[in-house]
Simulated assay, not measured.
Amino acid sequence: MSLPVGPYARHTARVLLVNKEDRLLLFKFGSRRRDFVWLTPGGGIDEGETLNAAAARELHEETGLMVAPEELGNLVAAAGGHADLGWVKGILREDYFFHRVDSLDIDMSGFTDYERESIAEHRWWSVADLEATDENIAPWGLAPLLASILRDGPPQNLVELPWHH
């Protein structure tokens, strides 16, 4: 498996946000056009923005959590490939950071109108929950990645996850 190289039709910065109970935050996202999928907090990178800055901004917009970009550290995983989402078509790439919080009351007041219409709920998932569900969760390979990070800490090298489109 090899990650595609840019330029990307869409490049996103995402965060594996884990609480003190070792549960991962996911948002249930969908629209009239697509089935629901559970996604980590994150989103598109604005022009001139670094990956860390984009991830920190998205984390604040979607959860209310303020994190300095440098607190996110290094990337832990990435996935990418071709997709046609209707509103974007081409090579997409998603980069993932790992961050822990003791607890967090999710504040979705920073959602865009599109996010308010598209995100049905949020939930904190254990590794066992991720392994047992038949719901669509992206990225693929999330359960073993999270189990590895919780057991051994963030990986030294970027983990390439299977493309989920």
Rank of each mutant, 00 (worst) to 15 (best):
G6L: 09
R10A: 13
H11I: 12
T12Y: 03
A13I: 02
L16G: 04
E21T: 03
F29L: 13
G30P: 02
S31G: 15
P41L: 08
E47K: 15
E47V: 13
T50K: 11
A55G: 08
A56C: 10
L59K: 02
H60R: 14
E61G: 00
E62L: 08
G64F: 06
A68C: 10
G73C: 08
V76H: 03
A77C: 10
G80T: 10
G80E: 08
G81C: 01
G81F: 01
D84W: 06
L85K: 08
K89T: 07
I91M: 12
E94H: 14
D95T: 09
D102A: 10
D102K: 11
L104R: 07
L104V: 07
I106E: 01
D107I: 09
M108N: 06
T112R: 07
Y114Q: 07
E115Q: 15
R116T: 00
E121N: 06
H122Q: 09
W124P: 00
S126Q: 04
S126V: 01
V127I: 02
A128S: 15
D134K: 12
E135K: 10
I137G: 00
W140I: 10
L145F: 00
L146K: 01
A147P: 04
S148V: 00
L161N: 03
L161I: 05
L161E: 03
H164M: 11
